[in-house]
Structure formats: C-alpha cells, structure tokens
Design a protein around this nucleic acid. Sequence first.
DNA 1: AAGAAGAAAGTTATCGATAACATGACCACC
DNA 2: GGTGGTCATGTTATCGATAACTTTCTTCTT
Lengths: 331, 331
Amino acid sequence: MKANLEDIARAAGVSKMTVSRVLRDGSGFSDETRRRVMEIAEKVGYVPNRLAAAFGSDQAETLVGMCVPRLTSGLFGHVLDGVDRALGRLGYQLIIGANDHSTTEEEAWIRQVASWRPAGLILSGRHHTPGTIEILRSAAIPVVEIWDLTTSPIDMAVGFSHSDCGAEMARHLLARGRRKAGYVGALARSDVMGQARFEGFRDALARAGHPLVDAEMLHDAPGFYAGYYGLETLLSRKNDFDVVYFHNDEMAIGGLAFCRSRGLGVPEDLGIAGWGGMEAASILERRLTTTVVPTTSIGKAAAEALVTKLKGGPVQAVTVVATRLVPGETV
Amino acid sequence: MKANLEDIARAAGVSKMTVSRVLRDGSGFSDETRRRVMEIAEKVGYVPNRLAAAFGSDQAETLVGMCVPRLTSGLFGHVLDGVDRALGRLGYQLIIGANDHSTTEEEAWIRQVASWRPAGLILSGRHHTPGTIEILRSAAIPVVEIWDLTTSPIDMAVGFSHSDCGAEMARHLLARGRRKAGYVGALARSDVMGQARFEGFRDALARAGHPLVDAEMLHDAPGFYAGYYGLETLLSRKNDFDVVYFHNDEMAIGGLAFCRSRGLGVPEDLGIAGWGGMEAASILERRLTTTVVPTTSIGKAAAEALVTKLKGGPVQAVTVVATRLVPGETV
DNA sequence: AAGAAGAAAGTTATCGATAACATGACCACC
DNA sequence: GGTGGTCATGTTATCGATAACTTTCTTCTT
C-alpha cells in the first residue's frame, strides 16, 4: 500500500488533518478542498490504514469476533449468516473461530482475538473457562452469549433453553401415546447443550412415569452416519422402543435411513424425532417431528444487541427467542 | 485493557524493549530477567496489543480474510472448516464475509478488509470486478482464488472446473442410456459457477447429438424448495424428460421429494442427478447420483498455499483438485 | 471601524510495540 | 594491557491517523 494521508495532503496542498476530516466526512473544510482531496484520494487509490486509526484513537473498533462450536453445522451456518448480514451492513468486520465444543479452545481463541481489541464478541454457549471470564471482565469487551439461555450472562445473551426443548419433546411424545422412548446422541467433546436437551428429555419422561428406556451416546460428529449407526447400536442392545429422540435432525435423518434399510415402519413400528429444524427435514418423504430453532434470528438479534450496546443504546441483558416444536409425520 | 509493555517494564525494573524481547521469545536476556518479566506479565494478565504491534512494524500480519458466496451453504461450511483448522493452528485470525454471489459486494468487502492490511485473502470464484483486481494488485496482498479453476489466477488458485463437472455428468447420463435431459438451476444473482456447470452440461449433450430438452432457472436460493418447485415448473412446461440434472444436491433432493409426492418413480420414470456431494445425499433411500467435491481439502489446500507463500516458501500458482462423479441409484 | 463569532484550516502530542542502533560489562587472547 | 568479541540491555525514531488545541481569515454587527 503506498499512499497515506500525508501523500494526499501534500498533493492537495493541505494538511494531513484536513484530509482526515474530509475522508471521514466530518466538517471543517470548504467544498473546494473536499473536491480536491476526494479527487486525489480517488486517483491514487487511497486505502485507509485502519490499524493506525484504531491504534491512534481509543475509539470503538469495527472488529467483532464470533466463536461457534462447529463451522460444518448447517444451523450455525444460518446463525453466522444472520450475524454477517446485520454487521456487514454497518461496516463491521467479522472474525470467526471454531472451538469444537471445547471451552479450552474457546479460551485460546479469545486470547488471540482479544489482542486485536475487538469491539465485541459473540460466543456460543454459556459455559466458559475461568480464564475466559477473567479476560472478558478485565478487558470489558461487550459480549453476547448465544444459543444457550442463561439468566446470568457475562454481559448479554440471546438464546433459548435446551433443557426445555428436550422436556417439551418428551411431553409431545407422551401425548402421542409413546411410552418407551430411547435417545441417540453424540458427545462431540463436551457438547453441554446437546446434553441439556437429553437431560430435559430424560427428566420429563421420568416425572411422567415413563422413564427413558435406554440411550446411546456416540463420541462422534453429530451427523447422518452417527444417527444411522447410533440407532443400529441402540436397537441391537435392547429392541424395545416405540420412539427415539435424536440429538439433532441430521442424526434423526440418519436414523430414518436406518429404519428404511431394515424395513422398520416409521411411525408405526418406531417413532423418530429430531431437533434443530434443518430445511431438509421438512421435505423428507415423511416430515420429521422436530423442534425448529430460529437460527438466523438469533444471529441477527445477537448482532443488533452488540451494535446497540456499542452505540451506547439501551439493551436488555437477556433475550429469549422462541423455538417451535413442529409435529411431523414420524411420530 | 490496562497493562502495557511499559507497565511490566517498570514493575520488572527493565526497559520496554527487554520485555518485548522476552514476550516474543527471542533472545538477548538472562534467565533471571525472563523469569521476572514472565511472572509479572502473568500476574497483571497482560494482553498484547496487536494493533500497535502490527502497526509499528511492517511485519507480516496474522489476519486472513475469506469471502464466500453464501454462509448457509453446507459445502462452504466445510471449506471454511478446512481453512479455519489449517490457519487457526498457526495463530492466524480469519475474517469472513459473504458476497451473495455478487462481485460488487465482494469488492466492497475487500475494500473494508484491505484497510486492516491482512496478510492474505481467500476469495471464491475467478470473476472479480476491475476495482477488485486493481486493489489487490496495488496492495500486493497474497490471494488464493478457490472453488473455480482459472489458468491465470490473480496470484494463486485452488479449484476445479465446473464446466468439466457438467460435461462429465452429461457423459455419464448418456452412458446410462438417458437421451432427454432437463436442467433445473438457480441464478442467485450471478452464480457464474453454477452457470458454468450448466453450460458444460448443455454443450456436452449437444455435441453428443442429444441436446438438452429444456432448462428451468429460478431466481432463488438454491435450496430444497427451489429444487422441488423448479422441477414442478419444468415438468409442467414440457413433460418429456428421462433425466434432470440439478444445480446442486440440495435442489436435487428437493426434486426427489417432488417425484415422490407425484408418484414418479426414480430412476424408472425420471432420473435425478445433483452436484456437490452433501452428506445427506448418500443416505437417502436411493443414493443420489452426484459429483463429490472435496470441500475440506480445498479449504485446507488454500490455507496452506497462503501460509507457505507468507513464509516465503515455493508455491504453485494453480492447484487442481479432483472432483469425483459418484453414480448413485437415482439414474 | 472595532470587535465578536464562526468557519477553515494548521500544529502538536499521542497511542504501543518494534527496528535499528548504541552502550556497558565481562571475558579471552595475543 | 590493549583489542576484539559476545551477551544483556537501554535509547531513539517510527509506523498513520486522530484528538485537542491553536491560528488565520471572513463576515457580520453595532
């Protein structure tokens, strides 16, 4: 990069400061000066040096960091999209990272990103290491925790209760007459949110007097194959279920594929329920019973909360978004 | 953020420079000094200011920008994942943006990101505005163009030929005895890569003497619904196809759903082919005939090419990755 | 015509880290 | 005992933009 403010100033016969004022569209210059400066800046292809600007002034930055569990999850793609659309419009830059469901990796990522003095951070989940909390508090960086509800956020939170999702599904399955439920999940590292759905599900069943029959937890990425093989394992251990709840829709679709391959009728022989509301789930031969999560809205709300806070506006600490249980044709 | 190098220097009774040397793990200090400095840095929770460091030295940065067409595409999620894993390990930060298949938006994004003086950029596709080319050339930022093959990259490229993908699928369908092919695509803005597949497909069919019967192009996001309704529209216009090639797997799965809903047998009544190799496609009741794209590898290769170049190593300008046509049970 | 008010600039100091160069202590060797 | 060399450390200038002042020049008022 060649031209800096001084080069333009020299060419235009004014001072650096005047050029700075013109380019930032403030006031304190004549139309003639503006014209000349703009013309020269255009001609030399001036690229501002935000490193210098950000460093020189303690003004709020335009860098926002976002850490998600996995980049390959369809749901998080939509959350990212919501964030990106809301932030990009306002001139913010989005730095992303994936922590693979590990709070330790999240902390390592935050340490790196914090050294860029970001304007704010968006984190996934409400569990963080003590080190993370320490950095965030002492650096006083605005933070939005998304995806998982917490009543005591570090700063702000946008989410919903995974435990409630599981409990709601349990009630739905019971209302549909199911009594012998199984669960197939994946414990990618320590996915506490999936775990919360499981526990909410299990506890609600137990309270209703029809406790969970069995659960199969894979140590694998929660995808189609995990669902397929997870159901196979569960059924081989104890073939006495009338419904199986899956960690997410991808796994549930894998489970449906397994049923098809074994000639198991869904929902007659076995009910299948998922979670997440991926688009594919609604266009299957039988629409999947699942919980739809407003992914894009969560991203958008998180970005807006952050921006509002950065601009000094009033923000509410916790924003609860509604998930929606959609009864399909698989239960 | 409170403590800076000077604070630590004062506390340790040395100069800023010595602290800087210790923290960057260089040489030129005694073990005793290192111990003291490290201890104090730890105690005060020192967070380096990379803004200042990056600005102060003209050293290579650790920011890498990446622009993708859509964040909600499953395929790009995997590319991002490949890039993130390769870069994150080496301490680079990833700034992302989505351009919605618009080269104009890409340019706007690059202008923003360029002002942060990134170490390198990863762009999707080989078509860019003149303004983009101009900025990249004059700023001399290392660039990797991914996803679409080009023999004359701006700098480096990692990709494959979309046109060849289309042609290969045409040959495959012909070899399977299909003679009356249709195409259902989506023109999200100007998705030139999908367009290249279409043209490769169409031209190969024409050359073989069995030209494309008809094509339906939707101005919509290339998802399941677009596939469903696109096929409906295509068939309502002219119901004389024995196979339909789709823009991607998501749309093809939508097409399969439409066939199912209308009682059309696949592959007996109509063949269906997709592109992309999404995981879901291989676990459908009938495995989808599609072209598998090595998404994660592309991301990994792009990141590695960039890093190698940044470290001054030898890099090849163009890396061709192999796609793989996987015959399924839908043709 | 003097003075006030305001617009349109210019000046200076500063942010934190680092490169480049300078210094001082200590040792070895002829 | 002087010279050269190495190690540990200090000094100074610098990166580009901007905040906070200060100055200069107009214009308008009474």
